[in-house]
Design a protein around this nucleic acid. Sequence first.
DNA 1: GTCATTATTTAAACTAGTTTAAGAATTTTG
DNA 2: CAAAATTCTTAAACTAGTTTAAATAATGAC
Lengths: 195, 195
Amino acid sequence: MSYPSLQEYIKKIVDFKPVELDIITRCFRERKVAKGEYILRRGQVCRFEGFVTQGCFRIFITDHKGTEKVLYFAGRQWWVMDIDSFANQIPSELDIQATEDSILLVISREHKERLYQEVPKVERLFRIMSQKAVVAWQRRLIQNHTMNAEERYSHFVTNYPEIAESLTNKLVASYLGITQEFVSVIRKRRSINKD
Amino acid sequence: MSYPSLQEYIKKIVDFKPVELDIITRCFRERKVAKGEYILRRGQVCRFEGFVTQGCFRIFITDHKGTEKVLYFAGRQWWVMDIDSFANQIPSELDIQATEDSILLVISREHKERLYQEVPKVERLFRIMSQKAVVAWQRRLIQNHTMNAEERYSHFVTNYPEIAESLTNKLVASYLGITQEFVSVIRKRRSINKD
DNA sequence: GTCATTATTTAAACTAGTTTAAGAATTTTG
DNA sequence: CAAAATTCTTAAACTAGTTTAAATAATGAC
């Protein structure tokens, strides 16, 4: 029960001793999540951070019209949580749902706090991880600001082919911030231009 | 030369001893930046992190059409850098320019690395700061996904009144992802509705 | 397996926001 | 303080993407 996938991921970021790696990964527990199941609902306080070892999750918000907007997908080796709710212990505005049968390694707030004290170098791990997250968000905003819908679609399917293929057009549309009908138009345009 | 504004900011996040606070702040140097001056140009590698004690900066990207898109404004007590370029030491796609006469406390990559070794608790400081940055980016994406242009405008001027007042409509437009002409339309609509 | 649900495509009418252009107001600079 | 440059406003024509609707295809549930 040492979660090799998580250990591999951590080792790439900070050079821990085997015993430290063991302490860290033992703070996580494995959770199987069926396709369609929710691991966070709007209004709840997010009490976990999750590392995806199998499958995929959608993190989305529902606007005042009732339309669901996907902020991001978390595939293998991604982290999934509402960091705003988790860090500030406030009710989440987000829902998080498995888009496939998935396996998640989860750590609770209490375990994480204890871990910071037992292995201070873990601060460095999460510092670097958070920085990577900032970079990812910054890139996403840049894409939204500098590409039109068709360019964003192309970018997504070429950069995340496995995730894109596992998703319905409706979910891809929701991530790109457009309608599923317009995704259909884009796909048609692309299939014509390929010839 | 102890930079009280920076010390106040840091103390709110992590409880350092006075001597540690001193070591930390001494790694920064003050830099005055005139309105209009650039502290980072597209193509350069970002070699600093800056803490704004006075004034304001715009962090923007130029799209393929030559239109400048503001990712965010950094006012007092904000951090300013291109974290993607700084962390990965790659050429930046961004420009950073002072929108007013400003004062910045800057730390170099080398000083920062040394600081992590001298005062390991600094990892915690930057871990928490990075998490706050992630929260800010997440909120910004949510706003872009769930609000129309007029709602985003209202949200910006009510949440950042001092920054909004110091900026031209053109810069506000660029931040909101709309044209300056449409900002004019929104402002007129709002002034009519007030009566 | 069949029925029901959900996803996809297509197309026409529509709208939020853009583009272009030109005059008025403000700011910057020498 | 006057000239030059930039910003702001207004409006008409335009367009990227939405909405509505209806038919078809695919998926899931019992």
